[in-house]
Amino acid sequence: MVVESDGLLDESSLAAAPLPQEAVRVRLDKPRMDDLADMVFLANNKKVAANLSTMPHPFALDDARALVAKAAINQPRSASFAIRLKLTGRLIGIARYANVEPGGPVHVGYWLGEPFWGQGLATEAVHALVDHAFTYHDIGELQGSCRVTNPASRRVLVKSGFQYRDQAMIRSLGAGGSVPIERYTLERAVWKSLKRWGQGR
Rank of each mutant, 00 (worst) to 15 (best):
V3I: 05
L8Y: 06
L8T: 11
L8H: 12
D10W: 02
E11T: 05
S12Y: 09
L14E: 10
A15S: 15
A16Y: 04
A16D: 13
A17P: 03
A17G: 14
P18S: 09
L19C: 03
P20M: 08
Q21C: 13
R25A: 01
R25K: 00
R27G: 15
L28I: 08
P31F: 11
R32G: 11
L36P: 00
A37Y: 00
D38H: 06
D38F: 12
M39Y: 01
F41S: 12
L42H: 15
L42I: 10
K46E: 07
K46F: 10
K46G: 14
A50S: 12
A50N: 07
N51D: 10
N51R: 05
N51Q: 08
N51V: 11
L52Y: 04
L52K: 04
T54Q: 14
P58I: 09
F59S: 06
A60E: 10
L61V: 15
L61K: 03
D62W: 01
A64H: 06
A64Q: 00
V68G: 00
A69V: 11
A69Q: 15
A69W: 11
K70R: 15
K70T: 10
K70I: 11
K70Q: 09
I73S: 02
Q75W: 10
Q75K: 14
R77S: 08
A79F: 13
F81Y: 14
F81R: 04
F81E: 09
R84I: 03
K86F: 04
L87Q: 02
T88N: 13
L91N: 00
G93L: 03
G93R: 05
A95D: 09
A95C: 04
A95V: 11
A95E: 12
R96N: 14
N99D: 13
N99K: 15
N99E: 15
N99F: 11
P102C: 15
V106Q: 01
V106K: 14
V108D: 09
V108A: 06
Y110K: 03
L112Q: 07
G113V: 04
E114L: 04
P115Q: 07
F116N: 03
G118Q: 03
G120Q: 02
L121Q: 00
T123Y: 03
T123C: 04
V126N: 03
A128E: 01
A128D: 06
L129E: 07
V130I: 02
V130N: 00
A133K: 00
A133I: 07
F134G: 03
F134L: 14
T135M: 12
T135L: 03
D138N: 05
G140M: 09
L142G: 09
L142D: 07
S145W: 00
S145L: 01
C146Q: 02
R147W: 06
V148D: 02
V148W: 07
T149K: 01
T149N: 01
R155N: 08
L157G: 01
K159L: 00
G161D: 05
Q163N: 05
Y164I: 04
D166F: 10
Q167L: 04
I170Q: 04
R171N: 13
L173D: 09
G176H: 02
G177Q: 01
G177S: 02
S178R: 09
V179R: 04
P180G: 02
I181P: 01
E182N: 11
R183Q: 10
R183M: 11
Y184W: 07
T185V: 13
T185F: 05
L186E: 04
A189G: 06
A189D: 13
V190T: 08
K192C: 08
S193G: 12
L194A: 06
K195M: 02
K195D: 07
W197C: 08
